[in-house]
Design a protein around this nucleic acid. Sequence first.
DNA 1: TAAAAATACTCCATAGGTATTTTAT
DNA 2: ATAAAATACCTATGGAGTATTTTTA
Lengths: 301, 301
Amino acid sequence: MITLKQLRYLSALSHHGHFGKAAKACAVTQPALSMQIQELEAELGVSLVERRPGEVVLTEIGAEVVQRAGQVLATTRDLEDFARHRGRPLTGLLRLGVIPSIAPYLLPKILPALQQRYADLCVELRETLTHVLFDELNRGALDVVLLALPVEDHDLATLRLFDDPFLLAVPAGDNRPDNVRVSVKDIDVGRLILLEEGHCLRDQALAFCGTAPLDMPSGLAASGLGATSLSTVMQMVANGYGVTLLPRIALGVEARDERVRVLRFRDPEPARSIGLAWRRTSPRKADFAALAQIVRERFCA
Amino acid sequence: MITLKQLRYLSALSHHGHFGKAAKACAVTQPALSMQIQELEAELGVSLVERRPGEVVLTEIGAEVVQRAGQVLATTRDLEDFARHRGRPLTGLLRLGVIPSIAPYLLPKILPALQQRYADLCVELRETLTHVLFDELNRGALDVVLLALPVEDHDLATLRLFDDPFLLAVPAGDNRPDNVRVSVKDIDVGRLILLEEGHCLRDQALAFCGTAPLDMPSGLAASGLGATSLSTVMQMVANGYGVTLLPRIALGVEARDERVRVLRFRDPEPARSIGLAWRRTSPRKADFAALAQIVRERFCA
DNA sequence: TAAAAATACTCCATAGGTATTTTAT
DNA sequence: ATAAAATACCTATGGAGTATTTTTA
């Protein structure tokens, strides 16, 4: 009879591609995990992984089984969450994922409020790129994610929190008149500095500039020096290397340098939508609504 | 750590409403099942069942947990099926549900062909009402169901096989001319004999006659003597108690009595659609396609 | 008093640990 | 020779059985 333990081990093995590491991740020894994988293969009557020297690769069937095992484990986790949090919103552990262009600006304002209002809550933070967050969400490694909408993944439900307009950050020496709103067309795309590939902020900025991501000759970002944080990008702007699109929520933190000027766009201002995403099957919707409430109180005009 | 065994026991307990019976169904002793349920309740930190004398009732949370446990178990079963049947369609056990107004007419023609063409296949049959079949399908107690479309349940996928027209069966003494097709309006609803409540055939017939199910004064059916098989209904027709709608697939079996005449309806003939339904997540779609092929060979004009 | 679930206990299957061997580079 | 997985063997946890007690109608 197949067990959840076997599926957990298989899932870990698939993610680590290595019996020893997977075993460590499961807090057991390598032989223990090996035995359970063998047991599972015997139960199912198929071979799931190919033991190659140096690496472990899933068979075709194995990959599909891993996928289905992920579903089983996520549903199980949802069951547990449901039972444990029923009626007591925002208690226990909440694993929150946030994208890098939101985390430093939003979290400092909401985490203290969360801790204060929900004393029984323990937030576990994860900051990384959108597609990684999605993966972890679907695997059940995260409960909810704070990111830029829209989300295409149909296994996820979303909630829009607020719109975050983009501003144009230019070096202080820029000769544009103050008090005049700029147009997207005023941007010299050749001087545009953006985060490196994979950041949704980069894609949004390119979309607003009407530039296809591929034929993008965007200054330092294109020359391999892709920045991994808005701080770095703003440093580059301050030093006169170019301009960038700055989300308004980052204004207070990133636009303090007097060598930088920040200009508003003409209406309709380009903006991104900030929202929450979670597995459709998640039983903690009440938690997410409470979280949304906290965010909105601080960020809705 | 929660286990599949606990979920299986809980599921059984919920269906039997009795620790002893549930334990028997799981092929374990009552204390074994009791212990696992207690263990599960301890893990989840909630009470799932209320032990009342004479009966066991689920708590509100328990009901939801049972529902979610069902999902976990069904997904797990799908995983097992996938691995075990991969690449070998129609082998092993296929649990097939069929509604009563199809089973006696379709199965004799397709089961021998199935056994012959797929010698490794073992078909387990279940004949009962549509809503029971759905329940068993969703619980994973059945693999696929043969029934009348449409199906509203959105967790199920369906495949249309063929259309089965209705014919009007009347006593031989009926004075309608031969060779003339009848109209639905010709039916004396007061003399219409139908299967008892719960049979979809009954609802379809009423819909075609434009009669609301509630204010239905349908002969014997309304007088509490609801028939449970078309055979019985046809016996009533033969004895002059009324008329009925007969699906064409039943023609050869049920219309042999010379005291019965069968008349065709004017175009467009009223008809029901016969199809297959299975859990969306089922990995045995290839099996179902092969099954559909067998049926179509014999029932598509 | 009877029926059903919980408890007490005993036993054994098995998951997991340690040590070692096998395998492939 | 090294790294990684499989195997051997041992231990101990805990799942399941039998017998018994508790509970409540």
